[in-house]
Design a protein around this nucleic acid. Structure first.
Lengths: 272, 272
DNA sequence: CGCACGGTTGACCTGTATCAAGCCGGGTGG
DNA sequence: CCACCCGGCTTGATACAGGTCAACCGTGCG
């Protein structure tokens, strides 16, 4: 709801071979194909391609697309991929790991603007002023594909599908943020947390993880910042969900028992 | 602060010849040039060009840019330019008038996601799914330039400056929304209203209007929706500002007496 | 083993929502 | 031209969600 999942095609192969990365994998319904070529550092062989690159390209176009990724870069947990004020040069496609992006006021308050996982693109904020306006922090060891933006622009003048893809990615981010504004502007704590969890689990499911179990990579405080709540409120709301039998929560491990209860919270009128 | 004004070049000529449109004009420091050519329906002669089109183009490129605008469209006050669910075909550059965009939940709650004025572009939300995901409603009689998106894409493959411009516009919108998230997630009522007014007056100033006086085109309820507050809270907060001598408010007419007081509210640490 | 950080829970407080009454001003019709 | 009406706005009284402050716990890491 606070995302735009509808255009994202279902992913046949999971994003990450590590099944402890974000959550719990399906009980085998989707086979994990770790082909030898998957190790090659090109988009055309990347099993995340369907998440971050356009589809329906022919081989020649795929070859061109490979030119977009200049290098890979590893980011340790807690380190920043980029910071507010740093020069903008590239977009980053997340290969593995989990990020948060946050903006800050001059007086120290900060606001998490999003959590990003494998296959998602970060850095779009930097385009307008040629410098980043937020921090991107890895919440677990991560690896990203570095895609110099001038190269993206150059190539997207030639490959129409890439051009369209870039536009859609930016538009999707705008629509996602509309959803967050709706959440922050008009929902109560329970609804916010419910929407957040449904969104997370949905994105993880797209990547081959369980629909009902997930491991949170962020603290209660970070969740609270994202949702416009204090960490105590996040904690209490989790406890409430547990009391009501909607989910089990053990630290950062969450198992959703009654997803419909969450959906009813987010969509009050459907509770007939 | 919740906008990204820094890259927007100062505008030499005001957006609209009507000085009752949004606020009060400068006391004559900036001459209003209504040239005969201004009536011609092309970007190259539009005095809003510097707001919505790339700069530093040569004549040939300017000619091409003119091809982007297919037609003009008038939208009466209260009417919609587009609605959630409608097919996306075009972006719109506002020539005159004032819009709000809003998203809605299925159960009727809605959230104003932004207010747009002359020179700004709306419709970006529609790109990702080829249909609009919000409503754009004119808050006063308006006129927009209709720019079919396929034409924009086509042309921006050839004119690098246009390509870059489109990317910057989308990125700017993303950054603006980050600012709104910060506002909704971490500010109190007074700070929100202060930030809102400062942002509005700054954008109006860029268009040749007064820095201190403005006429609100939206109701208290719409301001409240945008700021995540109820209309009563917006009204009370206005009253508080008036009591404190920060501004004069008479219905929708606002005169800011002490802008620094507002800035201090938004940036608490600068109140030394 | 113990420390430190993250998380939980309780008691209390406050900012904003809610409900309600009345006001103001602009537009309409007599 | 005036009276009325209605939508938008203001203001007051009260309720409540979530914030704040504080104590404690658990767990994972050094």
């Amino acid at each position: 709801m606070s995302d735009a999942p509808s255009t994202r095609t279902a992913l046949a192969s999971p994003a990450s071979p590590s099944d402890t990365a974000h959550g719990t994998h399906h009980s085998g319904s989707i086979p994990i194909q770790v082909t030898p070529q998957a190790l090659k550092v090109v988009c055309s062989n990347c099993n995340l391609r369907e998440l971050c690159m356009p589809m329906g390209l022919n081989d020649a176009q795929l070859q061109r697309i490979d030119e977009v990724v200049a290098t890979r870069r590893k980011v340790k947990r807690g380190a920043t991929l980029f910071r507010n004020g740093e020069e903008f040069t590239s977009l980053y496609a997340i290969r593995t790991g989990f990020f948060k992006t946050c903006v800050a006021t001059e007086d120290g308050r900060d606001q998490v603007t999003g959590f990003q996982m494998a296959g998602e693109i970060i850095g779009l904020d930097g385009i307008v002023n040629d410098q980043h306006t937020c921090d991107a922090v890895a919440l677990e060891d991560a690896e990203v594909c570095v895609m110099p933006f001038d190269r993206i622009e150059e190539l997207s003048r030639e490959v129409t599908a890439l051009q369209s893809h870039v536009h859609k990615i930016m538009s999707r981010e705008i629509v996602r943020e509309h959803g967050v504004m709706l959440l922050l502007g008009s929902m109560r704590a329970e609804e916010r947390l419910a929407a957040f969890l449904l969104n997370l689990v949905q994105r993880l499911h797209t990547r081959g993880f369980s629909q009902s179990e997930l491991v949170l990579r962020m603290t209660r405080e970070e969740i609270g910042s994202y949702l416009g709540l204090k960490l105590e409120t996040v904690s209490r709301t989790f406890s409430k969900f547990v009391e009501e039998g909607t989910m089990e929560v053990k630290q950062r491990h969450v198992r959703i028992i009654d997803p419909d209860a969450l959906r009813r919270l987010v969509n009050p009128q459907n509770c007939g």
